[in-house]
Nucleic acid binder design. Sequence first.
DNA 1: TATGTCGGCTTAACGGGTTCAGTACACTGG
DNA 2: CCAGTGTACTGAACCCGTTAAGCCGACATA
Lengths: 368, 368
Amino acid sequence: MTAAGEPEDAPPRPARRAPARRAAAPTRTTMADIARRLGISKAAVSYALNGQPGVAAATRQQVLDVAAELGWYPSSSARALSGSETGVVGLVLSRPPDLLTIETFFMRFLAGVEKVLAERGSSLLLRVIGEHPDAEAQTYERWWGERRIDGVILVDERYQDLRLPVIERLGVPAVLCGGPVRGSTLPCLWTDHAADAATVAEHLVGLGHRRIAHVSGPTRFVHERARRRGLKRAVTALGASLQVRECEYTGPQASEVTRELLSRSDAPTAIVFGSDVMALAGLAAAAERGVAVPGRLSVVSWDDSHLTTLVHPAVTALWRDTPAYGALAASILLDLVEGRHRGSTQMTPSTLMVRETTGPVTAGEPST
Amino acid sequence: MTAAGEPEDAPPRPARRAPARRAAAPTRTTMADIARRLGISKAAVSYALNGQPGVAAATRQQVLDVAAELGWYPSSSARALSGSETGVVGLVLSRPPDLLTIETFFMRFLAGVEKVLAERGSSLLLRVIGEHPDAEAQTYERWWGERRIDGVILVDERYQDLRLPVIERLGVPAVLCGGPVRGSTLPCLWTDHAADAATVAEHLVGLGHRRIAHVSGPTRFVHERARRRGLKRAVTALGASLQVRECEYTGPQASEVTRELLSRSDAPTAIVFGSDVMALAGLAAAAERGVAVPGRLSVVSWDDSHLTTLVHPAVTALWRDTPAYGALAASILLDLVEGRHRGSTQMTPSTLMVRETTGPVTAGEPST
DNA sequence: TATGTCGGCTTAACGGGTTCAGTACACTGG
DNA sequence: CCAGTGTACTGAACCCGTTAAGCCGACATA
């Protein structure tokens, strides 16, 4: 029977297939509940709850009270469905999984991102995948397609970055930690690696070092190339020489490279490592060979973390406020989502924390 | 300007502002587009896309083709709104932010969680907050209220855990990494800390150590108490003595405690640290005092990570497959969300990785 | 032939917010 | 007294899937 049978105006629906998923699902309160309770319309409730004009102050207060009393929360799905934002920001980390476990950079970065997101009522949707930039782009495409996110934070800028064209094609609000990139309008958050390099070079050359080495991370990352280039220039300008080695961000590789460097006839008297983990591995390699630090070898890490002060001797390192970096990235993104394009932003330069692994050359110059 | 209401009774979410047009929002394709294109109804499209019966194979194929062609993705909001799951799992880390930056445990755990979630098509909603268990519970309540998540993973079990009553009241599917807890029906993922303790005790006593110390993490964490108790029992049973110190999971604190222990007349000949970070700090403290490791002091870490092999000497540590731990937690939770309650599960025991920081007592017994 | 059973597809009603176009009423000013 | 301007609030459409229920034609069975 269709509408013919003159049913009561509001016949209580007879149990429609209980979803039964959720354990003890006590139907959660909706705006309609609040409206019914106060005898007003859903729309009025909506205006009241969102601070929109069009409701009397007294009514608004009643709505807020009842909402609090009933423990109402806005359904994020319903909100998102009506075209507003989702309140979620996406971040994909594509690095070899075991690397993330030793590198604390991202944890610090995330802490900063989180702080801002929490303050501004957003959340982070996180995915950790192996190093497959195309899979990363696909993840963004999917999240965006599913309307799960308002925007994304791009980390680990690469050359010929496959993610950028996808991001631009989709029109996803995004902030790039790196850059700026030619031909892209993405807001960038960039670092002056050359300035940092100069700081390191001045410190080491000032201590008397003339043969310096740089054990860098993989040059598929833009920042590694920028650092290498900057260091080369700065060291050379100061009249010293720089030899460069490249390796992955892992301990064993850094150790091996360090051993190789130390066994050369023109072994460097100072090594600048691309990360704290690499620096520690280098220190261990030096310790194994009985090379005194900083007596015969000075060590600098191009990234600071608690690690560097956890060991003895404590490692001289370039420090930057990584949580603040993440925080800034998040706030640039949220601004963009809200329609305020901030353009490119530069991070404040790093500070060299001089600790116990750098010092003047004391042992016999041409070490055997 | 916010709503002119009471500031105390904070509305559940920040008032939203201008609609904020999306960058270059090219209206994303919906099922209706597919339906229109093929001249069939939305419902038919839905059945086709979801593998439901009721559509001819040919039609289904056409639908799939067009969907692929138009780059259609289901709107997660619309899906969630119609009662199905959200495909999102929540995880709140409430630890002092700077701790997360040095402790890699969570990163490894997350990697495992992520792996399973990705395989099963879910995502992780992450929040990192300071150590406020009540705020953590509030976050869950809010996420659940907003229908953002299908379930949560609870880490860092505490005594008198404030989160459990909230979780049970809300009926949120959850898995507890710890436990089991009396009077709770939550599925647990527990570790036999006593067995691990016995492994460590046997190793150290077997090497001849009789005065052993344990520098543990804060006992507000259930696992720390379990470890301490287990170690006490095992060491005593083997005829040795154990002195215990408690401190936060930070390097400086662990260093200080180590210094204190080493300066006692009955200084231990072996120390078991609660984490790898603490062990490294302890090693640094020993190095500063010129205490040879393992000659005069053996060191064991109750948690293994790349850190322990990054330094020289490499640290003997209890290893467990932390990513697998996270993966298991995630899969138990997803099962629960899908209606399969797995009950309590026990992790496989840890393995003691004997490295360079443990050895027989060689130097003069009653160290000065 | 009348009836029953399917397969294949349509219609429409949700779900829980947002928002536009009104409506009802009060107050102001001419 | 009436137009004019607000303010407070209502109704209903809409966002985009899911799903119960209904309809129609084809084929099988009695």
